[in-house]
Amino acid sequence: MDRISLAAGTALCLLLTGLAVGKAFGDPVDDTLEIDGVPMIIRTAAPDGHPFDEVLSGWLFREAETRATQEDSFENPGMLAVERGAEIWETVDGTMGKSCASCHDDAAVSMKGVGAAYPKWDADAKRPINVELQIDKCRVENMGAEAYKFDDADQVALTAFVKHQSLGTPMSVDLSQGDLQAWWDKGKDLYYTRTGQLDFACASCHEASMGKYIRADHLSQGQVNGFPTYRFNTAGMVSLHNRFRGCIRDTRAEMPKAFSDELMALEVYVTWRGTGLSVETPAVRQ
């Protein structure tokens, strides 16, 4: 009986705190972003059937200092990972004596725009494929190398490098490929399903409360155009599935495995929610 009262008191206090903070709303800033002379599309009309009229980059929701760090490609610590990725690109790995460069040559040419079109349909595996899994597929099938363990520093660096070759290119997923539409449907379903002890859906924060503050974090639309992202929080690179799992962990729900059917469906859907936004990899966020 007393435990319940203690819990009730705690909940009451939390509720009051939550109400006080929840009322705060901040408009995203009115600012433009250009990186190395490449203009970034950070706001654009949403595609048909989208809950918002306008899709907005998470960049717009950050403080001035955070935004400034991303604008300068020298100051952006995420570029250290991109440079590491460039090294890996040239490094021979696996039994077939090849590097990425052996087949793909200069990434600035061969990978230009490529990252902006993922996830794609993998007809062999009969499921969506993202950049990380595409890299693994290439490594295994074409290099005789091992697939990366999820979130291996090299995986993150190489993914950031490949995605970075699409800097500025608007994201777009071709849902007509294979069964991508069905996975989009599944992803949408997951996006709106409340889970976890906190009973939150992705939409609870990134749609219903977009623009509000959760404690001191300014809630964005939860777009994926900047991943892998340099986060001040961990002072390191964060991959997309790492972030999905982190968000889900924070709602106190069981975390799906990286690249699981659940998270791949979510990636398809959430990528669509940012259609038209420029790839910003490596984005800088809090």
Binding site: F74, L80, A81, E83, R84, A153, M237
Partner: peptide
């Protein structure tokens, strides 16, 4: 970025 420190 766990590899050897890279200066730029």
């Amino acid at each position: 970025m766990a590899s050897a420190p890279k200066p730029r």
